[in-house]
Each structure stands twice: as structure tokens, then as C-alpha cells.
Write a protein that binds this DNA or RNA. Structure first.
Lengths: 422, 422
DNA sequence: ACAGTTTCCCGTAAATGC
DNA sequence: TGCATTTACGGGAAACTG
């Protein structure tokens, strides 16, 4: 019979996309007394799934079963499976299972490994399996997958509780906020500070005290929409993470993006600063948008706050953000256009902050191809005299998390790579 | 034995990409005397290829072989194969064939259909096959594929000369230019006029008389690079066709793009026109670029011509071309920026020509999301006083083609669809 | 080293399923 | 009908392969 091995070590639980190759490696931790013959390891996906599961997958490539021992890296045997690919097993029996309660990214799967060998007349079966895996079919499901992985790692130490999302526990904000910050520091190179986390907490809990440690439900974190918005808290936050990764990395890493600031806080900060002082803030109303807000003073000394329509990935791929800040102009009726952005909050001269980050030269540079006049895009806003501006609401909270530690024995599922594993 | 059928009718020879689905339909033209049993048709790809062929493909899907009669549309039997997919047959025997002379898009393939039935004790084998097909593995090979299809259609009536590109004939410019114009009228809605074709002829033949009917070799048409350029004549022309299809359709269809004009001709046309008169021309130095050139006069009355750096698909997807024309500004040292484009050659006021084609309102319109100031991109050129401009060379020729007609008999390969068949 | 060719796979759009 | 999920495949880039 099967000799169940102790669980398995996996740094980063994974998200696997059907049809996309992934790699996994298993290591035998016990030293076998001179096993000469070829030791075969078989990988099986969704091996022990309870029947009636909604979706079930299998490994498409013929690498499914047999593999011989290869590496003697640090004295122990290991196998690496490459080019594995998942495909859905259609119509397991009749129709799909029932639990239509869970969404695709809440459904947890696993990859099993088996081997069998004989030592001194003893037949030994080894078996181990990975931490829970999320299977998606389109990259558009990645954010949902990440949410699941985070929640699982944060809230359980069980190595393979595939039913975790049947009744997921709540998270303390102190834990959750730490994980969120960790996401930013891992993927964008800089985590979230206290003020930024406070704003996120306010978004989840409202204006309540940021001192007590509220609990967040899984649903509130990633399933329910934020009141009045067509997306959940995590979808919103992840869209920002993506925006940073693709378009704002240097600016983010220089800490020039305050980012998570309520509009009320924003005004409080800018009020009384020098005219032309601005700060950068992520849009709360649209996914993956960033805007800048600057302060001006009318003749009677009243502060006036202006924000541009948030820039999203499409706009930013046409023009890098630093260049937008450099070149932004406001036109008011035939006057020579002027850039209203002068000082990055609290008081850093714009070019001093962003100078190194500017890309295309202010139009002239950029080796002009001989007969042509070079041309760049300039972001402009046209203000009509009667333009009134009055921004809306505000919020604030704080963070912690520690990924589970996993034990190791016979098998060490030491590494598993898919494009989505970090 | 096989009863070879007469060739086959195929409106549009095809380009098929491996791994991408295509559809084909075969029709039986003879009325069978009450065939009750199921008539099976088998499709085979690259059935009779000479061995040693460089690449060989097969139909991946299990739809490969059997299909029963389905449609009685207009009284005749037909089968439609859907979701067919091609995959390369690797290592036919040992290494690939030898003829490394032909490029992938010059290699012609074919799709065969076979059926067998018995009438009144007579066993009849039917067989037919498609016109030559080009197989590609990436859309980046499409332009090359189109070139082959055009050349084949233009220069032979043979239904399946798979060795056509072993020694491809030359084309008369009178024929070729007609095909080229036809490409534009088919895919972009408007063909090429005499002047445009004359410029293309000059590009191929130099300044020579455009009256005599020069011949163009296949190599010169699509394989050799244009002297001094890193692309062939067809690659260049096709890049423009693509640019039009994706970004310039309305402007092209309104006939506002002169497009194919040598720089010399351009100057001759603009000289003496009112200041601010401009015309639109495709870049000859870069793939898929369009520029505008306008005329100005210095104080002593000398004409001065300016062209912007050509806009390519990336820029145009950030900002539609009509809007670029509307908003383009030139800045000279602190002066209020001005749009130098006033009249579309010969003398149409800019807004009269392009007014209907403008997209985003001149910034203001576009329902501004409440607290935000809307913003648009404006293309600008910054001129320094010492900017000198002097454009280069010029050329000119003319067009004709008629796709072959194909005969029909037993089988009528009536239709064949792939995403690339028009 | 490199050029021609294929593979890989994201991200959008469309199709499908429920 | 609408939403959730999958499929399709263009397009850019990496990997392959002689």
C-alpha cells in the first residue's frame, strides 16, 4: 500500500494556465542504499479530487508518467518535469459537479507525484503532492488567482486544504495589510508605507479608527464590489500594481507616487503649499489609473485643486508618465500654454525630482531623421473660464503577513515554475 | 484506379497558418443516381508532394478523414470541413529535403479530397485538389504569402503548379500595377490612380519612361531589398496597405491621401501654392509610415517645405490621423503655437476636408468625468531658428491584372475559408 | 553568429456555457 | 438575457535550428 510521505515544501503556490507550459521538480530526500535501477516518478494532476468536482484537469503532454533519475546535484536524486501542460477533462461523468458556489479561481487543485522502488526486498511506494494550485484559462483570471493564493497563504498552514474556499476565514487587517505591502515590494520594488495602508484600510472599513484591528472577509476583499464601483477591492488594487509594473516602475521606486491618498487628505496636504505643488494619486473610480492634482490660488487667496483625467495603460504606453509630467500644459484661451506642475509635494522642484526619468528629449533631441521635423505628443488640457473644480471624498488604515512554513521529508517538491510563480 | 477529376475552382487561393482553424467545402457536381449509402470524403494535406520537400504538413484534427454528405443546398451534394488545423510533419525521413532555395512562402502546398462510391456495379474513385496553398507559421509571414498568391494568380493559369516558384516568370508592369491597385481597392476600399502607380513604377524601374511596359522579376518585386533600404518593394507597399486598413481607412477613402508621391513631385506640386498648403505622403524610408508636408514662404518669397517625422501604427493608435492633422502645432521659441496646416492640396480648407473625420472633440467635449479636467494628446514640433529642411529624391510608373479563371467538373472545391482568405 | 522560421504566450475579442 | 468562463488568434518577442 501507499506509504504517504509528509507534505511538501513549496515556496510559492502556483497559478497555472491551461495550455501554457510549466515546470516542476521533485527531490528525494532520503538517501537510497544504492538503487541501481531506474526510479520512475509519475505526475498526476487532480489525482484525488473528490468526484463531482466542478472542473478537473489532466496533464496533456506525454511527460505524464515516466521519468528517470537525473540529477545528483547535492547528493540527492531529483526529477524535473518540463513542458507540462494542463487541459480540462471534459464531462467527467454526465454533467459537471454541482458546487457552482465557487468561482474558478477559488477552486483548488493539486499535482501528485508517485514513485515505487524496492530496497532489500521491501517495496516502498512514495507519494507526495503540491500545495493547492489555481487553474485558469485566461490571463484575465490572474488577479483572481493571486487573491486566492494570498488568502490561502495568509490564513492557513494546512498543506493541502483543497476545500479552503468553501468557507474561507477572515483576515485581520494587521495581517492582510502586511501581505499587500509585500506584494508591492515584491512586484514593484517598493512596499506601502503607513499612510498608504491607512488609506486602503479606510477603503475597506470606512472612516473608522485605524487603530483597532478590523477583520476582512474573503468576499469583501476580492468578491464583492466596492460600493458604487464595478470592481472589488483587490481587483482595484491589483490593477494599480499592474500599472506600476508596466508603466511606473522608476517613478514608484523613487517614492514619487503618493498613490493611495484620499481626495480629502490630498486637499489637506496641498492646501497652503506653494502654487503649482502637485502630487500623484491612483484613481479610485477607474481600474489602473493615475492622476496628478495640483494646487493654485485664486486672486482672493482661495485654494483651487485640479486633477487631470487619470492616465491608464493605453495612454501611458503612448507617452511615459515622467514625460507627461514634464510636458503637460494647460491652455486658457489663446494664452501661451503653461505647465501648472511646479513642485512635487511637499516642495521638490519638478525637474529635480523627475529629471532623470524623462525619456524622449523635449522634442528637439532624438536624432531627427534628416529631412523630417521631429514631433512628440504633448498632453494638454484646455480650460474654459467657467471651469469649476470640486473633488469628492476620503479614507485611512494599516498592515502584516507571514507565509506558512512547510515541512519536508521523503519527497521535496522543491521547485515549481510557471510564468505565474512570481 | 483513381478517376482524376478536372481541376477545381477556387476564388481565392489561400494562405493557411499552422495551428489556426480553416474551413473548406467540396461540392459534387454530377448528380448521382440515388446513392443511398453514406458517401465519404477524405481530405489530405500535401498528399502528392514530391518526397524531399522541405516542409510537409498534415491535418491535425480528427476531421481528417470521414465526412458524410450533408447539404442538399441547390440539389447537389457537398461537405464542409470545419475546424481544420495544420501541423508540420517533422523529420519526414532523416533531415528535411534539400531545396533550401525556396523560402517558406514560395513553397506551394495543396489540399486533396477523395471519395469512392459504387453506382450500378461500377466503382468510382473521385479525387480533386485545391489550388496551391501557402503555409505560414506566424502572421509576420503573411505579406510574403500574399506576394506569392498574387504572383501565381497573375502569371499562370495552371491549376496546381506547385513548382511555380522554382522559376517564376516575370510580370509586365501593366499587369502588375493593375493587381496592386486591385489590392488597395479590395482591402482599403479605393484603388490607386495613374499618378500613384506612376510613382510606384519609378520606384521599381527608376526614372525611365513610364510609357514602355517594363518587366518586373519576382525577386525584384518581393525578395530583393530596394537599394539602400532594408526591405523589398512589396514589403514596403504592403506595410502601407496595412497602415491604411488599420488607421487611415476613412481618410484614404475620401481620397485625401496622395500617398505615393516622390519628394520631387511633392515640391513641384506645393510650390506656389498658398502658404500652409499640405499634402499627405507615405514614408519611403520606413515601413508603414505617413507624413504631411506643407509649404511656407520665407520673407524673400522662397518656398520652404517641411515634413513631420512619419507617423507609424504605434503613434496612430495613440491618436487618430485626422486628429493629428487638426491639432498639430509648431512651437517656435515662446510664440503661441500654431498649426501650420491650412489647406489640403490643392486648396481645400483643412476643416472642410477633415471636419467629419475628427474624433475626440478638441479636448473640451468628451464628457469630463466630474472632478477631473480632461486631457488630450497634441502632436507638436519644436522648431529652433536654425532648422534647415531639404528633402531628397523622386520617381514614377503604371498598372493591370486579372486573376485566372478555373474550370470545374466532378468536384467543385467551391469555397475555402481561412482568416487570410480576404 | 546569424537569419529564417517556429514557438511561446499575453491580451483582446469573440464564442460558448450556464 | 446576462455573467462567467473558455476559446481564438494577432502580434511581439524569444527560442529554435540548422
Amino acid at each position: 500500500e501507499k506509504q504517504p510521505c509528509m507534505p511538501t515544501h513549496l515556496q510559492k503556490p502556483l497559478i497555472i494556465k491551461t495550455g501554457v507550459q510549466f515546470t516542476t521538480k521533485v527531490r528525494l530526500l532520503v538517501k537510497l542504499p544504492e538503487v541501481d535501477y531506474q526510479l520512475k516518478v509519475k505526475t498526476t494532476f487532480d489525482k484525488d479530487l473528490p468526484p463531482g468536482r466542478v472542473r478537473q484537469f489532466f496533464i496533456l503532454t506525454n511527460n505524464t508518467k515516466v521519468m528517470d533519475i537525473e540529477d545528483y546535484s547535492n547528493g540527492c536524486l531529483s526529477v524535473e518535469f518540463r513542458h507540462l501542460q494542463l487541459k480540462e477533462k471534459k464531462y467527467i461523468n454526465g454533467t459537471k459537479g454541482s458546487e457552482g458556489l465557487l468561482s474558478v479561481t477559488e477552486e483548488l487543485h493539486s499535482l501528485s507525484f508517485e514513485a515505487c522502488f524496492t530496497v532489500q526486498g521491501l517495496t516502498i511506494d512514495l507519494e507526495t503532492c503540491s500545495l493547492p494550485l489555481v487553474v485558469i484559462s485566461n490571463v484575465s483570471q490572474l488577479p483572481g488567482g493571486w487573491a486566492s493564493v494570498m488568502w490561502y497563504n495568509l490564513l492557513t498552514d494546512e498543506p493541502r486544504n483543497l476545500a479552503f474556499f468553501g468557507n474561507p476565514p477572515r483576515a485581520n487587517w494587521s495581517q492582510l495589510s502586511e501581505v499587500l505591502s509585500w506584494q508591492f515590494s515584491t512586484f514593484a520594488g517598493r512596499g506601502l508605507n503607513k499612510e498608504q495602508l491607512a488609506m486602503l484600510g479606510e477603503k475597506l472599513f470606512g472612516q473608522h479608527a485605524s487603530c483597532s484591528d478590523y477583520q476582512v472577509s474573503w468576499s469583501k476583499f476580492s468578491k464583492e464590489n466596492i460600493p458604487g464601483k464595478p470592481f472589488s477591492f483587490w481587483m482595484w488594487l491589483d490593477s494599480i500594481l499592474e500599472l506600476i509594473k508596466k508603466h511606473l516602475l522608476p517613478v514608484w521606486n523613487e517614492n514619487y507616487i503618493m498613490g493611495f491618498v484620499s481626495k480629502e487628505m490630498e486637499r489637506a496636504l496641498l492646501k497652503d503649499k506653494e502654487a503649482g505643488t502637485f502630487l500623484l494619486r491612483f484613481s479610485e473610480s477607474h481600474l489602473g489609473g493615475i492622476t496628478f492634482t495640483w494646487v493654485e490660488y485664486s486672486e482672493n487667496g482661495d485654494a483651487k485643486f485640479n486633477s487631470v483625467e487619470p492616465y491608464t495603460k493605453n495612454r501611458l504606453s503612448a507617452l511615459p508618465f515622467a514625460d507627461i509630467i514634464r510636458d503637460y500644459k494647460v491652455i486658457s484661451d489663446g494664452v501661451v500654454p503653461e505647465n501648472p506642475l511646479k513642485f512635487l509635494y511637499p516642495n521638490i522642484p519638478k525637474d529635480e525630482a523627475f529629471g532623470r526619468l524623462y525619456n524622449s528629449q523635449p522634442s528637439k533631441g532624438k536624432r531627427t531623421i534628416y529631412p523630417y521635423i521631429s514631433s512628440t505628443l504633448i498632453p494638454i488640457s484646455e480650460l474654459r473660464p467657467n471651469a469649476s473644480t470640486t473633488p469628492p471624498s476620503c479614507q485611512s488604515p494599516q498592515p502584516p503577513m507571514t507565509p506558512g512554513e512547510f515541512d519536508v521529508l521523503c519527497f521535496d517538491l522543491s521547485d515549481m515554475n510557471s510564468p505565474y510563480s512570481e
